[in-house]
């Protein structure tokens, strides 16, 4: 998976997947958010009902139509600095699982433009504490690959192995994998083998196979 997800990819995906009604709703919602940022509090939860929730192929990594719609709503916020951070934190804090995932996805896309810096990292850490595979996977997108420290990133990768999230869904793994992470993956594989349990195939991309 590439380390970047761009706004162009997101808007192209919406153009492919939105119905006319969905597109009209989203255009009106964007216009409202750009003039009245607090309106995002009621528009953000409604995005799935108006735009749909189906899986899409691009951007890669398990995106859905509502993730894409929520991303463009966040990108529309006429805010910077602490005001932007506070609004994004509120969307996450009061969001249901779909909204939380939308925020996590959006961080990767809007970060280069809106200059979030480290401000979204507490949200990633919250998501990585859950056992919800949708949130864990979204927290390990390009924003996580850029901003999570090594210890948190390694723990996130191990958590994917434990919960069955394909390693291919994690952004930046080829770049961020280090000796310590390989050791942790190897120990995980040994533990599974000792227990007579299945080892996910994708581990062997990073750990030397015992049969090799």
């Amino acid at each position: 998976m590439t380390v970047e997800t761009t706004m162009d990819e997101v808007t192209a995906a919406l153009a492919r997947h939105l119905t006319d009604d969905g597109a009209a709703w989203l255009a009106a919602a964007r216009a409202r958010v750009s003039g009245e940022p607090a309106a995002i509090e009621v528009l953000f939860p409604a995005a799935g009902r108006h735009c749909g929730r189906g899986r899409i192929e691009e951007p890669a990594g398990g995106w859905t139509v509502d993730d894409a719609a929520r991303t463009v709503l966040i990108a529309e916020l006429p805010l910077t600095g602490p005001a932007l951070t506070e609004t994004i934190e509120g969307l996450y804090r009061y969001g249901d699982a779909g909204e939380k995932r939308g925020v996590l996805r959006a961080l990767s896309v809007v970060d280069p433009v809106m200059k979030l810096g480290e401000s979204g990292v507490p949200l990633l850490r919250d998501a990585l504490r859950t056992n919800d595979t949708r949130l864990i996977a979204a927290a390990l997108g390009p924003y996580g690959a850029r901003h999570l420290d090594a210890a948190a990133y390694r723990q996130g990768v191990l958590k994917c192995l434990f919960t069955g999230i394909p390693l291919a869904d994690i952004a930046g793994l080829d770049r961020r994998v280090d000796d310590e992470l390989v050791r942790m993956m190897s120990d995980f594989a040994q533990e599974r083998i000792a227990a007579g349990r299945v080892v996910p195939d994708d581990v062997w991309r990073f750990v030397p196979s015992p049969e090799a």
Binding site: G62, D67, T133, T163, V198
Partner: peptide, 14 residues
């Protein structure tokens, strides 16, 4: 749909 990721059924592991 989107609320259950491929992860939830990945190799029956969940």
């Amino acid at each position: 749909e989107g609320d259950i990721d491929a992860a939830a059924t990945f190799e029956g592991n969940s």
